[in-house]
Design a protein around this nucleic acid. Structure first.
Length: 129
DNA sequence: ACGCTGACTATTA
DNA sequence: CTAATAGCCAGCG
């Protein structure tokens, strides 16, 4: 095989539309939209899927602009590694988040998802990484 | 331009 | 076991 520069290169999926990672945000939104109903994931999982595992904060921060995105992003399906709805206060109203989760069949107790592992959706695996 | 903050996570004490 | 700290990167004052 030809010598391929493999420095700290991130795998990154190639967009069929030929659009590269315009912004980290778009990529995060895209993955978040792939989350099936009744499933949840963590910022770190998405970050890892993008190749920036160490920058889980950027994922959550990108979510901050989810309202700014053209398409809707199921940010309510994205929680922290503990399954806690840390970002519920960023919703309007905050209770909307757990309400949506419960509506999708996910039980939330004390701002925390019950059986989080059970509903966990790994983008790295599901997207075919 | 510098420093603080933040929807996180992993490691160490 | 829980608590504190470091690493992360971009926006905002």
């Amino acid at each position: 095989m030809p010598s391929r520069k493999q420095t700290t290169e991130k795998p990154k999926t190639v967009k069929p539309s030929g659009k590269r990672d315009e912004n980290f945000f778009e990529l995060v939104f895209e993955v978040a939209r792939q989350i099936p109903k009744g499933k949840v994931t963590s910022y770190g999982a998405i970050a890892e899927c993008l190749g920036t595992k160490s920058s889980a904060r950027m994922v959550g921060w990108a979510m901050n602009g989810c309202h700014h995105a053209k398409l809707k992003v199921p940010a309510h399906r994205v929680v922290n590694r503990n399954g806690m709805l840390t970002g519920k206060f960023h919703f309007s109203p905050p209770e909307k988040m757990e309400k949506l989760l419960k509506k999708e069949g996910i039980k939330v107790k004390d701002d925390q998802i019950v059986d989080f592992k059970k509903h966990f959706w790994n983008p790295v695996v599901e997207l075919g990484f």
